[in-house]
Protein backbone atom coordinates (compact mmCIF):
# COMPACT_ATOMS: atom_id res chain seq x y z
CA UNK A 1 0.00 0.00 0.00
CA UNK A 2 2.73 2.40 1.05
CA UNK A 3 4.80 1.13 -1.82
CA UNK A 4 1.92 1.82 -4.20
CA UNK A 5 1.42 5.30 -2.86
CA UNK A 6 5.11 6.06 -3.06
CA UNK A 7 5.29 4.70 -6.57
CA UNK A 8 2.34 6.83 -7.52
CA UNK A 9 3.90 9.94 -6.01
CA UNK A 10 7.27 9.35 -7.61
CA UNK A 11 5.53 8.76 -10.92
CA UNK A 12 3.85 12.15 -10.57
CA UNK A 13 7.10 13.84 -9.61
CA UNK A 14 8.84 12.25 -12.57
CA UNK A 15 6.06 13.34 -14.87
CA UNK A 16 6.23 16.92 -13.67
CA UNK A 17 10.01 16.99 -14.11
CA UNK A 18 9.64 15.24 -17.44
CA UNK A 19 7.10 17.81 -18.53
CA UNK A 20 9.44 20.68 -17.75
CA UNK A 21 12.26 18.80 -19.44
CA UNK A 22 10.17 18.55 -22.58
CA UNK A 23 9.26 22.24 -22.51
CA UNK A 24 12.96 23.07 -22.16
CA UNK A 25 13.83 20.89 -25.14
CA UNK A 26 11.66 22.91 -27.56
CA UNK A 27 12.48 26.40 -26.31
CA UNK A 28 11.00 28.46 -29.15
CA UNK A 29 7.64 26.74 -29.44
CA UNK A 30 7.06 26.47 -25.72
CA UNK A 31 8.18 30.05 -25.05
CA UNK A 32 5.61 31.29 -27.56
CA UNK A 33 2.89 29.26 -25.91
CA UNK A 34 3.91 30.40 -22.43
CA UNK A 35 3.96 34.06 -23.50
CA UNK A 36 0.49 33.80 -25.04
CA UNK A 37 -0.81 32.19 -21.85
CA UNK A 38 0.92 34.82 -19.72
CA UNK A 39 -0.71 37.64 -21.70
CA UNK A 40 -4.12 36.00 -21.46
CA UNK A 41 -3.71 35.64 -17.70
CA UNK A 42 -2.04 39.02 -17.08
CA UNK A 43 -4.81 40.99 -18.82
CA UNK A 44 -7.70 40.09 -16.49
CA UNK A 45 -5.46 39.92 -13.42
CA UNK A 46 -3.93 43.32 -14.22
CA UNK A 47 -7.34 44.87 -14.87
CA UNK A 48 -8.49 43.51 -11.55
CA UNK A 49 -5.54 45.11 -9.79
CA UNK A 50 -6.42 48.39 -11.47
CA UNK A 51 -10.08 48.17 -10.46
CA UNK A 52 -9.08 47.29 -6.90
CA UNK A 53 -6.92 50.40 -6.77
CA UNK A 54 -9.66 52.68 -8.10
CA UNK A 55 -12.08 51.11 -5.64
CA UNK A 56 -9.71 51.62 -2.72
CA UNK A 57 -9.03 55.15 -3.82
CA UNK A 58 -12.70 56.08 -4.16
CA UNK A 59 -13.35 54.44 -0.80
CA UNK A 60 -10.74 56.55 0.89
CA UNK A 61 -12.18 59.66 -0.76
CA UNK A 62 -15.72 58.82 0.28
CA UNK A 63 -14.54 58.48 3.85
CA UNK A 64 -12.76 61.81 3.66
CA UNK A 65 -15.83 63.73 2.55
CA UNK A 66 -16.84 66.42 4.96
CA UNK A 67 -20.41 67.53 5.10
CA UNK A 68 -21.97 70.60 6.52
CA UNK A 69 -24.83 70.65 8.98
CA UNK A 70 -26.47 74.09 8.95
CA UNK A 71 -28.19 74.95 12.21
CA UNK A 72 -31.44 76.85 12.52
CA UNK A 73 -31.07 80.59 12.73
CA UNK A 74 -32.48 80.73 16.25
CA UNK A 75 -29.69 78.52 17.64
CA UNK A 76 -27.26 80.67 19.59
CA UNK A 77 -23.48 80.36 19.80
CA UNK A 78 -23.45 78.62 23.16
CA UNK A 79 -25.90 75.94 22.02
CA UNK A 80 -23.98 75.53 18.76
CA UNK A 81 -20.71 74.92 20.63
CA UNK A 82 -22.42 72.39 22.88
CA UNK A 83 -23.87 70.61 19.91
CA UNK A 84 -20.46 70.51 18.20
CA UNK A 85 -19.06 68.73 21.26
CA UNK A 86 -21.94 66.26 21.39
CA UNK A 87 -21.63 65.38 17.74
CA UNK A 88 -17.87 65.03 17.95
CA UNK A 89 -18.26 62.37 20.66
CA UNK A 90 -20.13 60.10 18.27
CA UNK A 91 -18.17 57.00 17.24
CA UNK A 92 -18.85 57.56 13.53
CA UNK A 93 -17.51 61.09 13.58
CA UNK A 94 -13.83 61.86 13.30
CA UNK A 95 -13.91 65.60 13.76
CA UNK A 96 -16.29 68.53 13.98
CA UNK A 97 -15.42 72.10 13.17
CA UNK A 98 -17.80 74.75 14.37
CA UNK A 99 -18.06 77.59 11.88
CA UNK A 100 -19.79 80.37 13.79
CA UNK A 101 -22.21 82.64 11.97
CA UNK A 102 -19.81 85.60 12.46
CA UNK A 103 -16.91 83.72 10.96
CA UNK A 104 -19.10 82.57 8.14
CA UNK A 105 -20.18 86.09 7.40
CA UNK A 106 -16.62 87.40 7.51
CA UNK A 107 -15.49 84.69 5.17
CA UNK A 108 -18.40 85.24 2.85
CA UNK A 109 -17.68 88.96 2.73
CA UNK A 110 -14.06 88.55 1.84
CA UNK A 111 -14.67 85.85 -0.80
CA UNK A 112 -17.93 86.81 -2.39
CA UNK A 113 -17.37 90.44 -3.30
CA UNK A 114 -20.79 91.26 -1.82
CA UNK A 115 -19.06 92.87 1.16
CA UNK A 116 -20.68 96.28 0.84
CA UNK A 117 -24.10 94.90 0.20
CA UNK A 118 -23.89 92.70 3.27
CA UNK A 119 -22.74 95.63 5.38
CA UNK A 120 -26.08 97.22 4.64
CA UNK A 121 -27.87 94.36 6.41
CA UNK A 122 -28.62 94.75 10.09
CA UNK A 123 -28.78 91.06 10.89
CA UNK A 124 -26.37 88.34 9.94
CA UNK A 125 -28.38 86.12 7.56
CA UNK A 126 -26.01 83.16 7.95
CA UNK A 127 -26.57 80.37 10.50
CA UNK A 128 -24.06 78.51 12.59
CA UNK A 129 -22.64 75.50 10.76
CA UNK A 130 -20.91 72.31 11.84
CA UNK A 131 -18.42 70.84 9.37
CA UNK A 132 -18.47 67.14 10.14
CA UNK A 133 -15.80 64.68 9.02
CA UNK A 134 -17.06 61.08 9.22
CA UNK A 135 -14.81 58.44 10.78
CA UNK A 136 -14.95 56.60 7.44
CA UNK A 137 -16.95 53.48 6.85
CA UNK A 138 -19.24 52.49 4.08
CA UNK A 139 -21.44 54.74 2.04
CA UNK A 140 -24.49 53.48 3.95
CA UNK A 141 -22.92 54.33 7.31
CA UNK A 142 -22.07 57.82 6.12
CA UNK A 143 -25.62 58.28 4.86
CA UNK A 144 -26.93 57.08 8.25
CA UNK A 145 -24.76 59.66 10.00
CA UNK A 146 -26.11 62.41 7.76
CA UNK A 147 -29.69 61.31 8.46
CA UNK A 148 -29.05 61.24 12.21
CA UNK A 149 -27.70 64.78 12.14
CA UNK A 150 -30.60 66.02 10.03
CA UNK A 151 -32.98 64.62 12.65
CA UNK A 152 -31.52 66.79 15.42
CA UNK A 153 -33.93 69.63 16.32
CA UNK A 154 -31.18 72.27 16.07
CA UNK A 155 -30.21 71.20 12.57
CA UNK A 156 -31.88 72.89 9.65
CA UNK A 157 -30.41 70.82 6.85
CA UNK A 158 -27.38 68.75 5.98
CA UNK A 159 -25.48 69.18 2.76
CA UNK A 160 -23.52 66.23 1.50
CA UNK A 161 -21.88 65.94 -1.87
CA UNK A 162 -21.24 62.31 -2.69
CA UNK A 163 -22.77 62.29 -6.12
CA UNK A 164 -19.44 62.15 -7.89
CA UNK A 165 -18.27 59.32 -5.63
CA UNK A 166 -21.49 57.51 -6.46
CA UNK A 167 -20.83 57.94 -10.13
CA UNK A 168 -17.28 56.67 -9.73
CA UNK A 169 -18.58 53.67 -7.83
CA UNK A 170 -21.06 52.92 -10.60
CA UNK A 171 -18.32 53.11 -13.19
CA UNK A 172 -16.12 50.81 -11.13
CA UNK A 173 -18.99 48.31 -10.85
CA UNK A 174 -19.46 48.41 -14.60
CA UNK A 175 -15.74 47.95 -15.23
CA UNK A 176 -15.68 45.07 -12.75
CA UNK A 177 -18.43 43.34 -14.70
CA UNK A 178 -16.52 43.86 -17.95
CA UNK A 179 -13.40 42.45 -16.32
CA UNK A 180 -15.43 39.41 -15.22
CA UNK A 181 -16.52 38.77 -18.80
CA UNK A 182 -12.99 39.29 -20.10
CA UNK A 183 -11.71 36.87 -17.45
CA UNK A 184 -14.03 34.11 -18.58
CA UNK A 185 -13.18 34.65 -22.25
CA UNK A 186 -9.45 34.76 -21.64
CA UNK A 187 -9.59 31.69 -19.40
CA UNK A 188 -11.29 29.93 -22.30
CA UNK A 189 -8.50 31.14 -24.57
CA UNK A 190 -5.90 29.69 -22.20
CA UNK A 191 -7.68 26.33 -22.21
CA UNK A 192 -7.83 26.34 -26.01
CA UNK A 193 -4.20 27.39 -26.49
CA UNK A 194 -2.96 24.71 -24.12
CA UNK A 195 -5.35 22.15 -25.56
CA UNK A 196 -4.04 22.85 -29.04
CA UNK A 197 -0.41 22.70 -27.92
CA UNK A 198 -1.05 19.35 -26.22
CA UNK A 199 -2.82 18.08 -29.34
CA UNK A 200 0.29 18.86 -31.41
CA UNK A 201 2.45 17.20 -28.77
CA UNK A 202 0.28 14.08 -28.89
CA UNK A 203 0.69 13.98 -32.67
CA UNK A 204 4.45 14.36 -32.34
CA UNK A 205 4.61 11.47 -29.93
CA UNK A 206 2.27 9.13 -31.79
CA UNK A 207 4.76 6.31 -32.15
CA UNK A 208 5.75 6.56 -28.53
CA UNK A 209 2.11 6.36 -27.47
CA UNK A 210 1.60 3.30 -29.66
CA UNK A 211 4.62 1.57 -28.17
CA UNK A 212 3.50 2.33 -24.63
CA UNK A 213 0.06 0.91 -25.43
CA UNK A 214 1.66 -2.21 -26.88
CA UNK A 215 3.62 -2.93 -23.73
CA UNK A 216 0.54 -2.50 -21.56
CA UNK A 217 0.38 1.20 -20.71
CA UNK A 218 -3.09 2.12 -19.44
CA UNK A 219 -4.93 5.21 -20.64
CA UNK A 220 -4.19 6.91 -17.32
CA UNK A 221 -0.49 6.16 -17.61
CA UNK A 222 -0.35 7.57 -21.12
CA UNK A 223 -2.42 10.59 -20.19
CA UNK A 224 -0.44 11.63 -17.16
CA UNK A 225 2.62 13.19 -18.84
CA UNK A 226 0.37 15.26 -21.09
CA UNK A 227 -1.68 16.48 -18.14
CA UNK A 228 1.51 17.52 -16.41
CA UNK A 229 2.68 19.23 -19.53
CA UNK A 230 -0.55 21.25 -19.61
CA UNK A 231 -0.14 22.05 -15.95
CA UNK A 232 3.45 23.19 -16.51
CA UNK A 233 2.38 25.47 -19.33
CA UNK A 234 -0.40 26.99 -17.24
CA UNK A 235 1.76 27.43 -14.16
CA UNK A 236 4.70 28.91 -16.07
CA UNK A 237 2.35 31.27 -17.89
CA UNK A 238 0.84 32.35 -14.57
CA UNK A 239 4.29 33.02 -13.08
CA UNK A 240 5.19 35.11 -16.11
CA UNK A 241 1.85 36.94 -15.84
CA UNK A 242 2.63 37.74 -12.20
CA UNK A 243 6.04 39.10 -13.13
CA UNK A 244 4.46 41.18 -15.89
CA UNK A 245 1.97 42.72 -13.48
CA UNK A 246 4.71 43.34 -10.92
CA UNK A 247 6.94 45.12 -13.42
CA UNK A 248 4.02 47.16 -14.79
CA UNK A 249 3.12 48.33 -11.27
CA UNK A 250 6.73 49.32 -10.66
CA UNK A 251 6.70 51.33 -13.87
CA UNK A 252 3.57 53.31 -12.95
CA UNK A 253 4.25 53.58 -9.20
CA UNK A 254 6.24 56.81 -9.53
CA UNK A 255 3.72 58.66 -11.77
CA UNK A 256 0.92 57.54 -9.45
CA UNK A 257 2.80 58.87 -6.43
CA UNK A 258 3.35 62.17 -8.24
CA UNK A 259 -0.34 62.39 -9.17
CA UNK A 260 -1.47 61.52 -5.65
CA UNK A 261 0.93 64.15 -4.33
CA UNK A 262 -0.85 66.77 -6.42
CA UNK A 263 -4.05 65.90 -4.57
CA UNK A 264 -2.26 65.98 -1.24
CA UNK A 265 -2.62 62.24 -0.85
CA UNK A 266 0.05 59.67 -0.04
CA UNK A 267 -1.77 56.92 -1.88
CA UNK A 268 0.39 53.86 -2.60
CA UNK A 269 -0.52 51.47 -5.44
CA UNK A 270 -1.69 48.07 -4.27
CA UNK A 271 -0.30 45.04 -6.08
CA UNK A 272 -1.59 41.48 -6.00
CA UNK A 273 -2.30 40.26 -2.50
CA UNK A 274 -0.87 36.87 -1.53
CA UNK A 275 -4.32 35.39 -1.94
CA UNK A 276 -4.76 36.88 -5.41
CA UNK A 277 -1.30 35.72 -6.44
CA UNK A 278 -2.15 32.22 -5.23
CA UNK A 279 -5.42 32.38 -7.13
CA UNK A 280 -3.59 33.41 -10.30
CA UNK A 281 -1.07 30.57 -10.03
CA UNK A 282 -3.80 28.09 -9.15
CA UNK A 283 -5.97 29.21 -12.05
CA UNK A 284 -3.05 28.89 -14.46
CA UNK A 285 -2.33 25.37 -13.26
CA UNK A 286 -5.98 24.29 -13.33
CA UNK A 287 -6.65 25.80 -16.77
CA UNK A 288 -3.55 24.04 -18.10
CA UNK A 289 -4.64 20.74 -16.62
CA UNK A 290 -8.12 21.26 -18.05
CA UNK A 291 -6.85 22.10 -21.55
CA UNK A 292 -4.62 19.04 -21.52
CA UNK A 293 -7.45 16.93 -20.13
CA UNK A 294 -9.75 17.89 -22.99
CA UNK A 295 -7.02 17.37 -25.61
CA UNK A 296 -6.03 13.95 -24.26
CA UNK A 297 -9.63 12.81 -23.90
CA UNK A 298 -10.27 13.73 -27.51
CA UNK A 299 -7.07 12.54 -29.18
CA UNK A 300 -5.40 9.77 -27.18
CA UNK A 301 -8.15 7.23 -27.72
CA UNK A 302 -7.79 7.46 -31.47
CA UNK A 303 -4.18 6.31 -31.33
CA UNK A 304 -4.14 2.54 -31.34
CA UNK A 305 -1.31 0.28 -32.42
CA UNK A 306 -1.87 -1.42 -35.78
Amino acid sequence: MIHRARHYLSLHAQNLLGAYGRLARQPVGSTMTVVVIAIALALPAGMRVLVNNIDALSGSWAGAIDFSAYLRLDVDTERATELADTVERRADVAQVTHVSRDDALAEFKSYSGFGDALDALDDNPLPHALVVRPAGGTRAEIQALADALEALPEVDFVQIDTAWVERLRAIVLLVERIVDIATVLLALAVVLVIGNTIRLEINNRRTEIEVVKLVGGSDAFIRRPFLYMGLSYGLTGAILAMLTIGVSLLLIAEPVRALAGLYGSAYELRGLTAREAGLLLGSGAILGWLGAGIATARHLRAIEPT
Binding site: H7, L11, V212, V215, G216, G217
Partner: peptide
Protein backbone atom coordinates in the same frame (compact mmCIF):
# COMPACT_ATOMS: atom_id res chain seq x y z
CA UNK B 1 9.23 0.61 -19.85
CA UNK B 2 6.98 -2.41 -19.18
CA UNK B 3 8.22 -2.54 -15.59
CA UNK B 4 7.59 1.16 -15.01
CA UNK B 5 4.12 0.73 -16.49
CA UNK B 6 3.44 -2.22 -14.19
CA UNK B 7 4.50 -0.08 -11.21
CA UNK B 8 7.44 -2.24 -10.20
CA UNK B 9 9.72 -1.12 -7.39
CA UNK B 10 12.73 0.88 -8.48
Amino acid sequence: LPLVIAAARR
